[in-house]
Every structure is written in structure tokens, then in C-alpha cells.
């Protein structure tokens, strides 16, 4: 959320006078980052609904997770490390473009995309190897629904990053003064990451105790 777009535009009056059609465009700053943040507040409440439901259902169960349902910990922990560190990597990309370094942006965004893909692959692998399915019991209901829903968000974030990479092929598309798309992808990725940390705590760590 180091978005420079939230700050007043760095353009000065002299630069934007060229024609009256542009004037209208220039009157307001790019508000997309604000829009995304507002949307994500809303989106996080949807996860909030799931988390609250999970806690209610958990509180009512005698044993959580139920007997015979083992929560795997090693792979998800590795996955968590991958996802959390990818949030730092993507920020390197954002820092690069703020120094007008498109190659740096591409490099770090490719790494982030790979890390995201590894996370998703790990998730799918976990699904395939777990001893229970969506309908096994109330815990597995919650488990698959919440991780699946989060996985969908990771997938969308991955598409955003790939979109940024695709657009960055054209020289000049992103630059030191024009990189809102880069920032939005980054913010969304951080969001997905934060949700995962809560999810990991609820679904994995808390089941140990």
C-alpha cells in the first residue's frame, strides 16, 4: 500500500494544459487504488463471515477436528512460507518500477507468479492426498470451503500479476509515473496473503491445541 497514487499527483499545472479534452481527464487523480481498497474492505468481510461461521461451528463441536480427521501441517507450513515471502518479492517489483526499472518489475513479478503457482499446486496436492473430502464432516466442510475460496482469490491474484506481466511487454506501458495497475496487483496480492495468515491460524495452528 505504498501507492503513490494516493498522494497528490506529481504533475503540475503546466504539464496538463495541452488540450481541453485532456483537462477533463486530468481534473481528478487516478482513483482506482482507492476503489480497490474500498472493495477489499468489503471482500474481507466475506471472509469474515466464513471465519465467524467456522468459529461458531468449532465452538459447538466436542472434538475439533473430529476423530479420524488429521490436519496435515508440514506442507501447508511450507506453502505459507512461500506465500508470505511472495508478498515481499512482489513489493520488490513495485519498488523497481518506482525507480523506472521495468526489467526489475518483470523479474520480481515473474518470481511472484511462480511462487503463487507453487502455492496453488501445493494446495491441490494437499487436497489430493488428504484422507477426507468436502462432505466428510463439518470440519472438512469448512476446510475445503475456506481454503478453496481463498485459493480462488490466489488464482485471481495470479491472473492479475500475469496481466501486469503481459502489459509490461510493451515498452513505456509502465513507468515511474504510470504504474497503477502494478500497484493494484500488489495490493490485491497482499490482501490474499493477509487472509491466508488468518486462515492458516484458524484451520491449521488452532487445531493443534
Amino acid at each position: 500500500m505504498q501507492g503513490s497514487t494516493i498522494d497528490p499527483p506529481e504533475t503540475t499545472l503546466d504539464e496538463v494544459v495541452p488540450s481541453s479534452t485532456e483537462l477533463h481527464e486530468e481534473i481528478h487523480t487516478d482513483l482506482r487504488v482507492w476503489g480497490l481498497l474500498t472493495f477489499l474492505i468489503s471482500e474481507s468481510l466475506m471472509f469474515g463471515g466464513f471465519f465467524a461461521s467456522y468459529l461458531v461451528l468449532r465452538g459447538e463441536s466436542a472434538a475439533w477436528p473430529p476423530e479420524g480427521t488429521e490436519v496435515e501441517l508440514l506442507l501447508p507450513t511450507l506453502n505459507t512460507i512461500v506465500l508470505v515471502s511472495s508478498s515481499f518479492v512482489i513489493h520488490l517489483g513495485d519498488t523497481a518500477i518506482k525507480k523506472d526499472d521495468v526489467h526489475g518489475l518483470r523479474r520480481w513479478y515473474i518470481v511472484t507468479a511462480l511462487m503463487g503457482a507453487v502455492f496453488l499446486a501445493g494446495q491441490v496436492y494437499e487436497y489430493l492426498t488428504l484422507g477426507y473430502g468436502l462432505t466428510t464432516n463439518i470440519f472438512s466442510n469448512c476446510f475445503y470451503l475456506m481454503t478453496g475460496f481463498h485459493g480462488l482469490h490466489v488464482f485471481i491474484g495470479l491472473l492479475l500479476i500475469l496481466g501486469v506481466l503481459w502489459r509490461s511487454r510493451r515498452s513505456g506501458h509502465y513507468s515511474i509515473s504510470k504504474h497503477v495497475g502494478v500497484e493494484m496487483a500488489e495490493i490485491y496480492w497482499h490482501f490474499v496473503d493477509i487472509i491466508w495468515i488468518v486462515l492458516f491460524t484458524l484451520l491449521y495452528i488452532l487445531t493443534i491445541f
Partner: peptide
Amino acid sequence: PVLAAGLVLLLFDINFGTSFFKPEAGG
């Protein structure tokens, strides 16, 4: 979004065999 979450759970209960709102199965 909270309603959306509730409706998604309901959708799964109706169509995909989960039991979020089925007391007989822990819901």
C-alpha cells in the same frame, strides 16, 4: 459480503452435500 458468505454456505448445503446448516451433522 456477510450475506454472500451465508448464501454460499447455503448453496453448498443444497447442492454439494455439506452440512453447515444441518444440525444432524454438526451444523
